[in-house]
């Protein structure tokens, strides 16, 4: 089948790429554009390790067709840091030991960023809900929840 051209922004840079009609956004980002931060875990939308932001909303890269992303803005964990300066979530994840094997971390960070961007001061329950679609098999989630809450608090302090 004919490949189709798609243009979108990836972490602030304009990208143009040819994709198969059935190609997933995850496949395009990883094998097409070489950003390996989002991971493949199940291909069924059950584990969340492929979570990326599409126009600020968390999306499962493995269930999103690339052709639907024309003109959109895509964010992955690779674009979280501002040069050498870590995003507050990244710093909090480091501080709170919120990663062990690190495989779920890029998706977890993007789910958390989407939450804090729309709700800067979430409750613990809201944090749990926000990462409910992201499976972590190492940490037991507690350090991740604590890190996200700490990052929210940190940002609040900075704003005040």
């Amino acid at each position: 089948m004919a490949r189709m051209p798609v243009q979108f922004r990836l972490n602030g840079s304009d990208r143009a790429v040819f994709v198969e009609p059935a190609e997933t956004l995850l496949g395009t980002i990883r094998r097409g554009l070489g950003d390996f931060a989002p991971k493949f875990g199940c291909g069924q939308g059950t584990c969340g390790v492929c979570t990326v932001l599409v126009d600020g909303e968390p999306r499962l890269g493995c269930l999103t067709l690339s052709v639907t992303c024309e003109g959109r803005s895509i964010e992955t964990a690779s674009g979280l840091a501002d040069g050498p300066t870590l995003h507050p979530l990244q710093a909090a994840f480091m501080e709170h030991f919120a990663a062990q094997c690190g495989f779920c971390t890029p998706g977890m960070l993007m789910a958390a960023k989407a939450l804090l961007d729309r709700n800067p001061n979430p409750t613990r329950v809201e944090v749990v809900e926000a990462i409910a679609g992201n499976v972590c098999r190492c940490t037991g989630y507690e350090p991740i929840i604590n890190a996200i809450l700490a990052a929210a608090q940190q940002r609040g302090v900075r704003r005040a």
Binding site: F36, A37, F40, L80, F97, L109
Partner: peptide, 21 residues
């Protein structure tokens, strides 16, 4: 003590086996 691999994990730069083009 900070883990030596943590920075790679949170920046998405850690290369797992499948993260090679």
């Amino acid at each position: 003590e900070q883990r030596q691999d943590m920075l790679g994990h949170v920046t998405g730069r850690t290369r797992f086996f499948d993260d090679h083009g």
